[in-house]
Amino acid sequence: MPATWLLRFASPERHEKDKAMITKIKTGLLVLALAVGAGASAAGAQPAPRTIHVDIHGFQFVPAHVDAHVADTIEWTNKDFAPHTASDAGGKWTTAPLNNGAIDRVVVKTPGTFAYRCNFHPHMKGTIVVTGNVAQSPKP
């Protein structure tokens, strides 16, 4: 069973520790506790969860915009030499620092539009648009 890792803001002070952690979580799932929506509507038929791949290449998220459904997994792979993150600009969630070739994942659980960036190179920006009903267990 993959490990579940609580979200936290990767401050520069934590970076070295985070780098050491990265190998432990390469295969782990990050559970993304995004802002809780207006409330769950009656559960309808949900499409099967899927994994959406985002490459980090040339200091860009590719694709920079993804459309996801509640319970989908977003998977980032860093193909740059420079380490990157995919992180909420407000510090609510982040992947681990991703070295070259490293992968991290987030399961989206709440509908909405979520802008993110690389904490190390903040000009790198991406957006996740999540549709569907709030997952039954919105917290990690």
Binding site: H15, F81, A82, P83, N99, N100, F120, H121
Partner: peptide, 10 residues
């Protein structure tokens, strides 16, 4: 810090 991190990675 970014220079050390990125240039080391390169």
């Amino acid at each position: 810090q970014l220079m050390i991190q990125d240039h080391t990675a390169v």
